[in-house]
Design a binder for these strands. Sequence first.
DNA 1: TTATCCCTTTATCGAGCGATAAATTCAAGG
DNA 2: CCTTGAATTTATCGCTCGATAAAGGGATAA
Lengths: 221, 221
Amino acid sequence: MSDNSPGTRNAPPHRTAKRMSPEERKSALIEKATEFFSEEGFEAGTRELARQLGITQPLIYRYFASKEDLINEVYHKVYIDQWQDEWVDMLRDRSVPMRARLKTFYHSYTATIFNRRWMRIFFFAALKGLDINQRYIERVRRSLLIPICEEIRAELGRDDSTPVTDTELENVWLMHGMIFYQGIRKHVYCSVQEIDMAFVIDTGVDMYVDSAHQSGAPGSG
Amino acid sequence: MSDNSPGTRNAPPHRTAKRMSPEERKSALIEKATEFFSEEGFEAGTRELARQLGITQPLIYRYFASKEDLINEVYHKVYIDQWQDEWVDMLRDRSVPMRARLKTFYHSYTATIFNRRWMRIFFFAALKGLDINQRYIERVRRSLLIPICEEIRAELGRDDSTPVTDTELENVWLMHGMIFYQGIRKHVYCSVQEIDMAFVIDTGVDMYVDSAHQSGAPGSG
DNA sequence: TTATCCCTTTATCGAGCGATAAATTCAAGG
DNA sequence: CCTTGAATTTATCGCTCGATAAAGGGATAA
């Protein structure tokens, strides 16, 4: 049996892709590229990506000037589009005790980033040393962790006129790392099936808040 | 000016590599490959690796049957050769209080793995889902974290006839993650210059030991 | 029905990859 | 000196990659 006819080797069963509007096709491409590159890494080939979309490889280049352009749109979708400005609002909401605020925030934050695609793209990008990754981490520091430091100070009634110190920030990074690492275990190591997020967040936040209260809180000793 | 003569484009200044004994050459190759692949990822080309060694690319294949073989030796050097059996001895040494044991252990452990090469190779391998990586994590669990659980039980005078529970293990993973994450920040994110390891380890270990003491220790309340 | 538009495919290019075979060159032993 | 053997280089193969140009073909409007 000869194998000259196209589409019989290991390709999808249809010979020609369904016609789509440019907007549909482009968003389908970005969606699939996110899944594909998060599994295979950004060195993976455009031909295999096209095959999984049921299209031919040159069609990708009608919608993206280069592979790098496509990847940049994937980054944008992961890093920028999924960021929620509500996170900082939660953290700043002084009608709620800091302990509860932190737990609410981390439940929302991990609901967004604790999934296979986000976690793996994050580490693929980190290992490449990409600027967009550095900027994301800086955004976490500036827009989430520093506010946490400031709010903890406020709740403890401490001086809020001086800038947050490195030590205060490092304490928050410890809590953050403890929580974040459990996502790595599940989605990068794949060494655990399910994580008890409530337990992880409760433990991490309680540890942080308790330690903040103990370390030189006025009138605590 | 023509560029036909070899070695004038962007190669090292010498035309021919210094002759080495097979043992010297092979170990030099593995050493440089570890550095090279930890920076560029395992998709990086053998020609660039050879260039950095001041040799030509086919010479690599006199010492390794394939690129994959070379990479496996890199893994072996990182994962197996640097493992220290003394780690479990430290953790089992009941002449020392558990808190101090854990701090000694983590200082030794992080001294080995908190460096750019180890951390990056670990994550490159993790993202590839390699079996050797899974086995390393399993080794950490079985040979380090489970012993920690058992030793904590012993120090608290609890029943040591039942196997370590998932909950006990998850508590250790929280401490472990808190410490490990700070290595990620430095060597994968490259978002921090220096880490106060004594502070990180003290905080992580104290948090874990304190929480173990509090959670239903007989005679503690 | 036919013409037009544009989404999609076919064909192909040049570069880089891992790997092999054959030629070369250096160093040691006679 | 010359010979010999092994370390190293040169040349090259087949394949895959990202990317481009040109041909094909399906939907829509006249």
